[in-house]
Amino acid sequence: MSPQQEREPIISIRGLKTAFGATVIHDELDLDIYRGEVLGIVGGSGTGKSVLLRTIIGLNHQKKGTIKVFDKDLDALESAERRAIERRWGVLFQNGALFSSLTVAQNIEVPMREHLALPKALMDEIAAMKIAMVGLPPDAGTKYPSELSGGMRKRAGLARALALDPEIVFLDEPTAGLDPIGASAFDALIKELQQALGLTVFLVTHDLDTLHAICDRIAVLAEKHVIVTGDMGQMLSFDHPWVQEYFHGPRGRAALQAKEQ
């Protein structure tokens, strides 16, 4: 048995099928995510990475298959139980998806205010701490999302995703649209937070540097299912045209060299 199989899967997907009308996006998809790991999901554009993420968190409903999170079948839960589970994960959407009529700090307080009864002073302090934690300047708290740059909006979105100290965070292309320096800073931030807070991270990305820098395991989505999971070494030696092209193409080689230096 490999060490992975002895670990406890925090999310476990079996025989998943999703479709929009007649278009099947996933078929017979199996995937395990283990507690405390950073799992990178890669795949060509339109292979259904975002749809997979949305299906796990319940924004999209599968046609077949089961999704277990924390060992509970999400479809079999009462809505109260489901909400309790939803509080244990945080999601960063592709564009941050901040509420545009609230300031950054108010955005971070939304989940606390909706789910918990905390004193206002404590919520304000926690919001300020989360803002610092994701590397935003203190005055960002009073700004509206439209006053922030793309990178800052992503950081603010991450702060909101972390508001309830979740155990799992789902990140959809967190470094897309950031400059390389901003992207590596964001990678470092995710890794640091993951280690300090013991997070499990489900990371959809196209960024090869991110994959090298922070992912413990990588899952490749192609042909409607996960064709391979494993660490970078396994990816480099896996025999599939898309996987070869992706990890051995010019960008893949550059990222590999950068990692080795």
């Binding site: 700090a105 701490m129 610092a132 009073t142 300090a196």
Partner: peptide
């Protein structure tokens, strides 16, 4: 220890409402 240190490092003043 790591968590306590991280929180201490991120002690920042901040306000919530717009100015």
């Amino acid at each position: 220890t790591a968590l306590l240190a991280r929180v201490e490092a991120n002690d920042a003043p901040g306000s919530v409402e717009p100015r």
